[in-house]
Design a protein around this nucleic acid. Structure first.
Ligand code: FES
Ligand code: FES
Lengths: 147, 147
DNA sequence: GTGATTTCGGACTATTTTGTCTGCAATTTA
DNA sequence: TAAATTGCAGACAAAATAGTCCGAAATCAC
């Protein structure tokens, strides 16, 4: 798996929150139910996003979480980086230490090309775009079984 | 991590065997030492490659393993598929079940583009090419600490 | 045949990731 | 002030991955 489960949950939740187009807080509980994710696990994941400033939380009755800045300013990259770190954007394809032009592995050229494509893709993709897509076509976001 | 450790070990070993340009068998023990990989673990990984027909083994004194077919006919894709499976080439970026145009997630379009690039890259890259690169420029292959 | 070398197969342990649970802190509302 | 709701923090359990170990099977060299 390219992204960890924690990371995919975080992205799903972030898109969902962004797609609501409201400033109001939404409880993690309801997000977890909507996306069919374990509430407690999602809580821990979202804490990483709040710590990174991508979300803000309000610990109060009828509180919850909300985006920390406009959805158009939150990139997919920043969400991934906050949860999984930046390893996938810098690591050697073969897992060798110190990927770089100084000591390249045989796959280095090919891999850096792929990686930079992924890098720019994640940088230019914002929550606003993903949320809009999710809304526009009623795109699937939840981890629900396909009936 | 995009590829599992088992998979990176398998690729490293495959490249190493191919880079020797010999038909002679080489013992897993010596490969493990050369690449600084746990011998027992590498053994299990390579068993997957022999079962997939990518390598042949000769269980005999002075035996070992060798490529099952010409290095030019072994693609990076086939090695990855034999060890990690084909999930990374078909899975949803968000880990949702049933990635496809019928039920796309918001990241689907971007992701399928990336995936197909990775797919064609892995398909067109052969062990012959990687081995040649490894030999040509004395490229790093072993998992050794950078001194 | 006997012994040596080598992969194969399975059992086992360790580490990381994933998921669960419980109590606490913060704040609103009554 | 008291009660209720909510995220936070850390301990804990389960599952997946990574790594270790040992005995068996195959074959060669003698
Ligand atoms: S050194 Fe392997 S991808 Fe850069
Ligand atoms: S459904 Fe998510 S990438 Fe295809």
């Amino acid at each position: 798996m390219v992204l960890s489960k924690a990371c995919t949950y975080g992205i799903q939740a972030a898109i969902y929150v962004a797609s609501r187009n409201e400033d109001a807080y939404v409880s993690i509980q309801s997000v977890a139910e909507k996306l069919n994710i374990s509430f407690h696990f999602l809580t821990k994941v979202l804490q990483q996003l709040t710590q990174a400033g991508l979300m803000v939380s309000y610990r109060v009755p009828n509180g919850g979480i909300s985006l920390g800045k406009p959805a158009s300013q939150i990139t997919l990259y920043s969400v991934i980086a906050a949860i999984d770190g930046t390893d996938i954007f810098t690591e050697c394809m073969l897992g060798l230490p110190g990927c770089g032009t100084a000591t390249p592995c045989p796959a280095h050229d090919h891999w850096t090309e792929m990686r930079s494509k992924l890098f720019s893709l994640c940088h230019k993709t914002t929550l606003a775009e993903l949320a809009e897509k999710a809304n526009q076509l009623n795109l699937r976001l939840a981890n629900l079984p396909l009936v």
